[in-house]
């Protein structure tokens, strides 16, 4: 009886642990939280060959979205500036946002911060890797290689 009872307790503890871990695990198919849904990139980790990249999503009207990038040298996230303007947008009535950023070669650790009108602040982090064009890409897209060389 005692053994059975102990076994039952152990089983309950293990199940609780597994459930709690899975509850905190990120859903690989969905980037977002209760305040914002990121449409692009579609996953937390993605790869692209486009240096000029749009981060898009949908949120509620009045939410301010700002985009920053991790600098491994400083160890901090720095707000991005694009064509002289800060990468900060406040969603309008449609809730759609699209922010252009310029990626650097290799991995870009991007943080998306939301500031809601009620004072709530959330953060999301995504990794976007910018790949230099492969040989097959060069053969396929002569326009891009001319720009890459330039």
């Amino acid at each position: 009886m005692k053994k059975t009872f102990k076994l039952l307790i152990m089983l309950t503890l293990v199940c609780s642990f597994v459930l709690s871990v899975s509850a905190f695990a990120a859903d690989p198919g969905m980037v977002g939280n209760s305040v914002i849904k990121i449409k692009k990139p579609e996953t937390y980790t993605s790869t692209t060959t486009q240096k000029e990249y749009y981060i898009s999503g949908v949120t509620s009207s009045g939410v301010t979205v700002s985009v920053s990038r991790y600098n491994p040298f400083t160890g901090y996230f720095h707000l991005l500036y694009v064509d002289g303007k800060a990468a900060v947008q406040t969603a309008g009535a449609s809730g759609l946002i699209a922010q252009k950023i310029y990626l650097t070669d290799g991995n870009n650790k991007i943080r998306i911060r939301t500031d809601s009108p009620d004072g709530k602040v959330t953060f999301l982090e995504v990794n976007i890797t910018l790949n230099v064009l492969s040989l097959s890409d060069i053969q396929q897209s002569p326009i891009d290689i001319r720009k890459a060389i330039a």
Binding site: G32, K37, Q50, Y54, S56, G57, V58, T59, L96, A98
Partner: peptide, 23 residues
């Protein structure tokens, strides 16, 4: 120039029930 289609920005499908996508 960089001109995405609505599908590439994900604007052609609704988000989910948590956040209403009005457009």
């Amino acid at each position: 120039k960089n001109i995405p289609f609505a599908t590439e920005l994900g604007f052609n499908t609704a988000a989910d029930e948590d956040i209403k996508q009005q457009v």
